[in-house]
Computed example of a mutant assay.
Amino acid sequence: MPRLATSSFDKTVRVWDADNPGYSLRTFTGHSASVMSLDFHPTKDDLICSCDGDGEIRYWSINNGSCARVFKGGTAQMRFQPRLGRFLAAASENKVTIFDVETQACRHSFQGHSKQVDSVCWDPSGEYLASVSEDSVRVWSLGSGSDAECVHELSCRGTSSILVCSIQPVQGCLSSVAISLWSFGTCKRTTP
């Protein structure tokens, strides 16, 4: 079923029928602050997740129209691990926390940014996560088991601010909105 979702400063999450965008399938209320981010689970068609400015994360059941779980951990952006959806990455202040989706237990806490983390994105395999602050991008490897580490730091001090990034599966490059491309293997800036 083609769906899209919106989050709002009015503290709601809405799920829409993409074929009929004038029709809202569900409106979810319960957040105490503006909803900053949301994401659909990659394998559970019924599950959507949202976080608000107070750090509250909520799992919503689209079919039931109800809140399935509430816990703390993300204020800026959160994303489900692609394909499997086993983990949820949530940005809050200058760190990123990786939660187990089933138990909400913290699996990893990535710290190292000097400024607030504004954006996170997974690579398509779900083995790497990029976190973005105003002046840097850090690429984290989840590794196997409990091992996790920063494998690349891309500093942009003295240049334009970074707002978002994406990990491209074909080129293997990290791209920022400043149209800078970074070679994932050599960690060097290239011309777009």
Rank of each mutant, 00 (worst) to 15 (best):
E134L: 08
C173S: 07
G74N: 03
P192M: 05
C165Y: 05
T12L: 06
R83N: 13
A18G: 00
V120R: 02
W122F: 15
C49I: 15
D10V: 01
W140R: 09
G172C: 04
T103S: 15
G30L: 04
V137Y: 06
D52L: 04
L154A: 01
W60M: 09
S180C: 00
I162W: 09
S160I: 03
V15H: 06
S61K: 01
V117F: 01
S141L: 02
R86P: 00
L163P: 00
D135Y: 09
W182H: 04
Y128W: 13
L47T: 10
N20L: 06
T27R: 14
V151F: 05
V132T: 15
Q104A: 01
V151K: 10
G185F: 09
P82E: 10
S24T: 15
V35G: 05
R26P: 08
R83D: 08
G185L: 13
L142P: 10
S119F: 12
L154I: 15
Q77K: 11
R189A: 02
V164C: 13
M36H: 01
H41Y: 06
D39L: 00
P169H: 03
L4E: 00
D19L: 13
G85W: 07
F9E: 10
V15L: 04
V139D: 09
D45S: 08
G73I: 01
C67G: 01
G55N: 08
L181E: 06
S144I: 06
Q171E: 03
S155G: 02
N64D: 14
W122P: 12
D147M: 01
S161D: 05
N94S: 15
L181K: 08
W140M: 03
S183E: 14
S61R: 04
N94L: 05
T12D: 10
Q116A: 12
S146V: 07
V13R: 09
V177Q: 11
V151T: 13
V120K: 02
S37W: 01
I48R: 01
H41P: 12
R83H: 12
R138F: 02
Q116V: 14
